[in-house]
Each structure stands twice: as C-alpha cells, then as structure tokens.
Amino acid sequence: MENYDSNMRAAILKVLASQRLAVLSTVRGEQPYASLMAYAHTPDLETLVVATGTATRKFINLSQQPRVSLLVDTRSNCEADFHSAEALTIIGRAGQVEPNELEMLRSLYLERHPYLVDFLSSPATVLIKVKVHHYLLVNRFQNVMEYHPGNEKDIFS
C-alpha cells in the first residue's frame, strides 16, 4: 500500500510539474464555467494556488460556490496523446489566503510564474488557494486512480 502511495504521489507531482496552466471549473447556479489558469502547488500536494482579477466571472462564481475542479494534462495535441497523455482532475475547495500564509503562497506562485509579477502585484488581483480533497489521475487512456493527499475525511463537510 505504501508503494501505491509513493508511486501515485510521484506520478501526480510529475504531471503538476510538467505544466503551467490548468483548466479551472467553477459554477454559477447550475451552470459550469471553465477558465484557463496559471497555477502552483505545495510539495505536500494539499494546496494549489491560482490568481485572478476580482472583477472576473470566475472570482464571482468562487465567492458564491467555493467547490471547484481543475484539470491539468500532458497532451501535446498529437495522435499519440491517446495512449501517452495523462490527465489529472483535482477536486477541492477554493478559499481566501490567510495573512500568515500569504507570503509563502505568493512566493510559490511567483517562483513558478515569475513573468506574472506585475499581474500579481495589482490591487485588483487576488491570490486564491485551493484545498485539495482528492486527485484523479487518468493514464493509459482509461486507467483512473484516486489519491487523497490529506488525512481529513471530507473537507466539504
């Protein structure tokens, strides 16, 4: 079992490290809404961090319904993607960054995306953390494994 855990962690970290952008899904009422976002992740896999303008549709959506899903994948838009691409679906809850963690998450984000420093510095931009409930890693076309990074049973409860 420990072996599964470490293999799965390594596989997830590999996918997260290989990409810069994720598709973030939010909802408004019953309508899903997908957006492309730059992201960074904590090494313990428990938190992802994204940034957005406070006037954006996604930010408004998040303020009303913090449950989110993100998709990160390794496709390269070629035929071989069908057997070789991996997709990582992340299920979690978006939340405000607390003052005591702001510096750490901000550095994490900028380390990954140094070119976004101006964007992040704008008073109209807000850093959002996503507490991960679980990951779903899809590879070999249809193989799906689930990984729970945290010990808590349900962050939604």
Binding site: Y4, Q142, M145
Partner: peptide, 12 residues
C-alpha cells in the same frame, strides 16, 4: 490491512 490514500476508480 493498512490505510492508503490511493483508491482505484477505473482499471484497464
């Protein structure tokens, strides 16, 4: 039996 953070959802 040991607790694992990994569960299989779909296996090929």
């Amino acid at each position: 039996k040991s607790y694992s953070r990994v569960t299989a959802r779909q296996i090929v």
